[in-house]
Design a protein around this nucleic acid. Structure first.
Lengths: 238, 238
DNA sequence: GTGTGTCGTTCTGTCTACACTTTTGTATTG
DNA sequence: CAATACAAAAGTGTAGACAGAACGACACAC
């Protein structure tokens, strides 16, 4: 129970946004569920106004949909949609690895190789997933294109749960990551792209299976789903 | 002057959103400009509440940024940012053309070829740009991935003005379009991707030049910039 | 028993009011 | 005259109130 009454008023919306986004990512809202504004606002200790602003952002990000005079709903968990997102992610990452191999500085490449080499076999699954996400984001960053990074983050957030469900299949990820990093470091775009493609594509062939499991975990208790701090702050211009 | 008083109350926000988005796309807000909520709300004949909800969506879409206690600002027009967006667009479209060549049905491909063949040399530049955008979106649609289409639309909206400035360089587009369509129709992903890559990449080599002109046109009078009806409605889940 | 109409509740969509912050303009002081 | 302090104005961030739509319950008619 939060005992901190209300320290300051300004800028509560920002925190509200972060929290609501995390709830969306971790499926604290069940698929298709209607979001009760007054109830949620009370839970977050704010009025409906800043809450609604946050919800509107989540609509733009693809987490929610709005139906006229009915309010906000969590998007239904459509296997086909998740498949499309995985497909999109694959496209983005294949291009990322190609561009990274072409453009990244030698130092940046070195830091990538070092990153995967230094990775210890993590003890818990959450850490494993975090490493995985960090690796893929890192490659996108090597392209030097922050818009690409943002877009990838957005897509990743929307399929976060699927990657979480799929975490146990991530056993041999490490060798693949090393291979990809090597291909990039040796400035071989085609090889890097090819490896990345198979690395990702293999996963989502069984996407329907994953979704099925996902439904179970979600409705069993959404808070069980890992909530990696998905810091997808947009690049602040200016 | 709008004489229609207020026919109905519900769902005015939706129209507000459309209008404000168009204003953002066409740079009715100057780069870096602070957006005065009360003023704009008055101009749109609504209160600040629905306006702010729209503005928040535009933040999520990358058109605006928000500074604490200072409000909403149009993102600054950074040539580097536009370059990144063109780069991102290029990635998305190269992948789109590849995937289209692999996945599209014969009928869909046929309709693409027919589309470019039927295109008459348009009399005005606006129509030319519209044809161009329609062609590229069509290819994305051939992939069968609506998420990809949405992303591409989002990116396109953000560089709409640059394509408008660059419209006169679009002279030999038609032949290139035909070549791309042919490559897709003959199910040759690599060739399609290669053609698309050079088709787009050639444009944004001179992006800095384009931006320079863009600044002129924007500050001369933003309403001059073509406002193609950019119908980027998100795919409504459910 | 089934279908339909009406009333009451709940919740959204919007407006208005207010607190707080930033900015601007002015006057005072060195 | 410049610089600073201060006061007023403007504008954002949030809360709360109100009108209307959607939903459900209940009663009535057939």
């Amino acid at each position: 129970m939060k005992t901190e009454a209300k320290p300051k008023l300004a800028r509560s919306a920002s925190r509200v946004y972060d929290r609501v986004q995390q709830m969306a990512i971790t499926y604290a809202f069940k698929p298709g569920e209607r979001i009760n504004e007054v109830e949620l606002a009370a839970k977050l200790n704010v009025s409906r106004t800043p809450l609604r602003e946050s919800l509107n952002r989540l609509v733009a990000e693809g987490f929610l949909v709005v139906k006229p005079n009915l309010g906000f709903f969590r998007r239904s968990l459509d296997p086909e949609e998740v498949y499309h997102l995985y497909d999109l992610r694959c496209s983005l990452e294949v291009q990322s690895s190609k561009l990274a191999a072409e453009r990244a500085t030698d130092e940046a490449m070195e830091s990538l190789v070092q990153m995967v080499s230094a990775e210890e076999e993590p003890d818990n699954e959450l850490e494993l997933l975090r490493q995985d996400e960090a690796f893929h984001i890192k490659i996108a960053e090597l392209t030097g294109n922050p818009e690409l990074v943002n877009m990838l983050r957005g897509v990743n957030n929307r399929i976060h749960f699927a990657r979480w469900i799929d975490r146990r299949a991530r056993r041999n990820s490490r060798e693949e990551h090393i291979a990809i990093a090597r291909a990039i470091a040796s400035r071989d775009p085609d090889e890097a792209g090819r490896l990345m493609d198979s690395h990702i594509r293999r996963r989502y062939q069984q996407i329907v299976e994953i979704i099925k499991i996902g439904y179970g975990e979600i409705f069993a208790g959404a808070n069980e789903i890992s909530s990696i701090s998905a810091d997808n702050s947009k690049t602040a211009a200016e």
